[in-house]
Design a protein around this nucleic acid. Structure first.
Lengths: 221, 221
DNA sequence: TCAAAAGTGTTAATCCTACACCCATGG
DNA sequence: CCATGGGTGTAGGATTAACACTTTTGA
């Protein structure tokens, strides 16, 4: 045992949302980052995060932090991993418990964005502070994996959506096109969506049916 | 923010091994527990664990701890989850980063077992201290899940093994019998094992071929 | 009436499971 | 030569991927 001070605990979050791309109909998987205003890594972009208060749970800390820095309220919030390498911060020993979150597209646009907070496309990130590049890599891997066998994609959409919307989410996350016919059948087979009976009018073509996520278990927590 | 002291960090491990069952040819998934020698939960069984030293990584802490309490050297060691509910310890605020480990059957028998350390069958555990019941539940779920799509089962076996050995491991973890023919084909198709060319002599019947795990990536870390 | 997305149908390839069957060994 | 686990073969069902085809709308 040494006489070094005890390691500090921090909680950070990787927040994913879909953002419309300029002069395009596509959306791209994005995340908000905050610019560091002090050393170390002054001026670098980093994940939102902060210390764990003695009276809050890890999840509460993640939610509070996320709210404070971006004003966002996630629809999905889940623990990712805990990073504790000795040298991950050049100045002090910090163990970071990292959560990842999904926010609805329509809410992501309302996010409080200032000088020091900005959205970045997930496939075009700057070099981040600390080991945050590695952390985002983990989060992306987990997201891509989970979208295949859970209903988390719903957490990125509003209450009502078309199957094309849902497919677009999957495509943005996976980074490849999916066959609309097979996608439809696959989703219908899972029973995670149900038709609302309404249709989305005003499109350029045949109006698609609107669906909602079937109420089931917690998606939020 | 409050003026309460900062939460403490602990690292705990769930260690799985296969143990022969008395007067039976079967093995059963088991884990070593330590009896608490102080309050809170004095006398209750608990997971091995201890504080994180300032100069060691989380993984190193897990490995050191595991060595100190059981004398075991795990063949697989992986972070499970971090537990940080405010009330999980009745006396102080502790955030526990939990790892889970697999040890080889032949080494598990050599484990240093004393008055305060004992193996328990995973499906017949006593009531544990703190939230350790919940933690073991998580670990079991993860193990059962991972055995289906990774080669972790190899970490429970010696260097050379028969497919029946490997199948026995899968069966002990999953808690159900598997078709030997289909199991063989499934494993062969993954390319995770290769025949050594040798056979296990001295059995009561046709001598089965011996296999080894194909060298690939780290299984240990 | 045309373009394009919504939605349905079909087929072939693949994978999984159950189970029949042969092989090799100790007793 | 028999019981038993080792090991191979195979047929049917389920799942998947590719793509042709029909429907419905706005322009």
């Amino acid at each position: 045992m040494s006489s070094d001070p005890a390691p500090a605990i921090a909680v950070s979050t990787v927040i994913f949302g879909l953002r419309a791309i300029e002069r395009s109909e596509h959306v791209v998987l994005s995340l908000p980052l905050v610019k560091r205003v002090r050393e170390p890594y002054l001026g670098r972009w980093a994940l939102p995060g902060g210390p764990l208060a003695a009276t809050e749970s890890l999840r509460e800390a993640a939610r509070r932090n996320l709210r404070a820095t971006t004003g966002l309220d996630p629809k999905h919030l889940e623990q990712l991993y805990t990073f504790g390498a000795v040298e991950r911060s050049p100045v002090d020993r910090v163990v970071s418990i990292v959560y990842w979150a999904l926010v609805r597209t329509d809410e992501a646009d309302r996010a409080r964005i200032g000088e020091n907070v900005r959205w970045f496309a997930a496939d075009a990130l700057p070099q981040l502070a600390f080991d945050h590049d590695e952390i985002v890599g983990w989060a992306l891997k987990r997201l891509r994996n989970k979208v295949e066998y859970t209903r988390i994609a719903h957490a990125l959409l509003a209450d009502e959506f078309t199957l094309a919307d849902l497919r677009e989410v999957h495509e943005a996350i996976l980074g490849r096109r999916l066959d609309p016919a097979n996608f439809r059948r696959r989703i219908e087979a899972t029973g995670t969506v149900e038709a609302t009976g309404r249709h989305l009018e005003g499109g350029r073509h045949r109006p698609p049916a609107l669906y909602r996520s079937t109420a089931q278990k917690e998606l939020l927590l």
